[in-house]
Amino acid sequence: MLLEVRLYSGLEKYVENAQYGKPIQVELPEGATVKQLLDKLGIPQEQVFSVLVNGTHYNCSDVMEDGDRVALFPPVGGG
């Protein structure tokens, strides 16, 4: 399956040529979890604070689907 992945706020540094917010296409086997995505991208799990899949919070063990929009964030806050 193909995922549309966006990295933000410094996480892009783990992926060659990635820029924050610019979508990258990632191919993973059907039924892949968020953890598998992080492993494939080489992003340490402890650096990822929020995973939003189609705008909804996911945990590392959650399974994604083909075409999902995935956004990964380190700790962020403000107001």
């Binding site: 706020s9 924050y20 604070f49 929020s50 956004a71 380190p74 962020v76 806050g77 403000g78 107001g79």
Partner: peptide, 24 residues
Amino acid sequence: HPVCGEGLPKFGTNVLMNIINEAG
């Protein structure tokens, strides 16, 4: 704390723009 000690000092409050956008 990850937000007070890392998130806020690095990009400030406007680091929220992308996560609020992604959250729809």
